[in-house]
Design a protein around this nucleic acid. Structure first.
Lengths: 137, 137
DNA sequence: TAGAGATAGTTTGTATTTCCAACCATTTTT
DNA sequence: AAAAATGGTTGGAAATACAAACTATCTCTA
């Protein structure tokens, strides 16, 4: 078991822990993990259906129906791109933004007990190391 | 934005990155992320249906059908607990163990480019910090 | 520049995942 | 011994996902 293996192991376990928290909080607002992610992505930008699908690794048809449902709930809106009539842009409604913000707070609160035991230096270190891991390989 | 917020942010993004890898590798073996998790859990122990459900945050009925499907594929087996006739214990078949092992290797390989840029000391640090985060709060 | 091909999304059909409620079988409690 | 609790399974409904077929728009090329 190399150090890299240990890290992979810890990353996978962390993933499931965090996913559990996100799934629970999403569920409390009747949102799947995927919908939660879409709201997270659209918080600070608008995006095309296909780009969202590619980014999330989903089929565009899946993305399409997912958006329709979120739209019915009033969380996001679709609009045609004036420069290219084929393109549909998706962006949040005020209600969607509000919900995204509220859930973000809940996630922070839910994970606070996890980060709590770390001191300032450890937090900085961990953030830096995770950024390294996240950097496109 | 506090340091803890930065860490939560990085944790969430890491979660989605790792989940993407796990979903892809699972999918290549026709397994959902949840099924992958079940195999991961049962690798080194047997478990009851309800315990698995509780651990994964799923309804026991969900767990039940999931197990039936995995059983049909020959990945795991169910057996009655002789001490308590209600209890069903679930454990891996040799084929299930083999598949779990193969996927674990694949996950390590898939994440290697992520851990690659880190030197030995950074790997040790990251593993240690993630363990702190994972420690039951 | 007209027609072929490519691109962006939606729709339709199917399988899977998940929940909830109802149910059966087996303990455990009273 | 009857009632309550526990452990699982089954059935019904909604959500999620993919693939294939389709529509509309744009781009390229002959």
């Amino acid at each position: 078991m190399t150090a890299a293996d240990d890290v992979v192991d810890a990353l996978v376990r962390t993933t499931f822990e965090v996913a559990r928290v996100l799934t629970r909080i999403g569920g409390e607002h009747d949102l799947s993990l995927t919908q939660l992610r879409v709201l997270g992505i659209l918080r600070d930008r608008r995006a095309r259906v296909t780009d969202l699908a590619a980014y999330l690794g989903l089929d565009k048809s899946t993305m399409s129906t997912l958006i329709v449902r979120a739209q019915r709930r009033g969380l996001l809106t679709r609009g045609k791109n004036p420069d290219d009539g084929r393109v549909v842009e998706v962006y949040m409604t005020p209600a969607g933004l509000e919900l995204a913000k509220r859930m973000e707070d809940e996630v922070r609160r839910a994970l606070a007990p996890r980060t709590g035991p770390l001191d300032q230096e450890q937090l900085d270190q961990l953030a830096k190391l995770l950024e390294l891991v996240l950097a496109r390989p």
